[in-house]
C-alpha cells in the first residue's frame, strides 16, 4: 500500500470511532428529552420511563450504522413506540399478577400538597384517557396536541401521508373527548364528581 493510502486508512480508522461517538452524542443531546416525554405519553409509567429511554438510545447505538442521516429522530421515535408497547404490556401483566390496580408513583415536584394532588389526579386521568386510545391514534394525538409538532413534521416523522395524519388526528380527538367525558364522571377522591 502506498504511503498516502496508508495514511488515509489510518486517518479513517482513527476518525471513524470518533465520528460515531460524536453522532451518538448529538443524537442523545438533541433527542433525549423528546424521547423521554414521548415514552411517558405513550404509556410508560413514571417509574419505568428512565429505563425505557435508555433502552431506546441503546438500540440506536447498536444500529447507528443503519440510521439514515437526518432520520435519527424518526428512528428513535419508532423505537420508542415499540419500547413503550413492550413496557405497557409488561406493566399490565404485572398488575394482573398482583391482582391490584397499582398506582404509578409520580414525583410532582410541587411543594404544595393540594396543588400536587390536583396535578397528580389530572396527570393520572390523562394517562387513563390516552391509554384508551388505539396506539396509532395516540401517537398522532401526542405528537400534535402535547408535543405540538406540526402536521407536516408528524407526517415526516411517521412516514405517513399527510391525509392519514389528519384523519388519525380527527379520530384521536373524538376518542379523547369521549374518554374525557367518561373520566369526568368518575368520582374524585373526596367523593365529588370532578
Amino acid at each position: 500500500m502506498s504511503a498516502p493510502n496508508a495514511a488515509l486508512r489510518e486517518a479513517t480508522e482513527t476518525s471513524a470511532p470518533l465520528a460515531r461517538t460524536a453522532r451518538l452524542a448529538a443524537l442523545a443531546r438533541e433527542n433525549f428529552h423528546f424521547i423521554w416525554r414521548s415514552l411517558r405519553r405513550l404509556g410508560v409509567s413514571q417509574g419505568a420511563v428512565d429505563d425505557a429511554a435508555q433502552q431506546v438510545f441503546e438500540v440506536a447505538s447498536r444500529r447507528l450504522g443503519e440510521i439514515e442521516p437526518g432520520r435519527e429522530r424518526a428512528f428513535l421515535f419508532k423505537s420508542a413506540i415499540l419500547v413503550a408497547a413492550e413496557a405497557t404490556r409488561k406493566a399490565a401483566t404485572q398488575r394482573a399478577r398482583d391482582g391490584g390496580d397499582a398506582v404509578d408513583e409520580l414525583d410532582t415536584g410541587l411543594p404544595n400538597p393540594e396543588e400536587a394532588t390536583d396535578w397528580l389526579r389530572r396527570r393520572m386521568l390523562l394517562d387513563r384517557v390516552l391509554a384508551a386510545l388505539p396506539v396509532d391514534l395516540r401517537v398522532v394525538f401526542v405528537l400534535f396536541e402535547l408535543e405540538e409538532l406540526s402536521m407536516v413534521e408528524i407526517a415526516r416523522l411517521l412516514d405517513l401521508p399527510p391525509g392519514t395524519v389528519a384523519s388519525r388526528l380527527r379520530r384521536a380527538r373524538e376518542a379523547f373527548h369521549g374518554e374525557a367525558r367518561r373520566c369526568r364522571s368518575l368520582p374524585s377522591p373526596d367523593g365529588d364528581p370532578k
Binding site: L24, W36, Q54, E58, S61, R122, L126, L146, H177, C183
Partner: peptide, 29 residues
C-alpha cells in the same frame, strides 16, 4: 376546561438530569 386541565398536566413531563446522564453514560458519550 376539564380537558385543558388534562392536557396541561403533561407540561411537567421531563426527565431528570440523572436519567439523562445515565443514558449518556450507557452510550459512552
Amino acid at each position: 376546561e376539564f380537558e385543558r386541565g388534562l392536557l396541561s398536566s403533561s407540561h411537567a413531563d421531563a426527565p431528570s438530569e440523572r436519567a439523562y446522564q445515565r443514558t449518556l453514560a450507557s452510550l459512552g458519550v
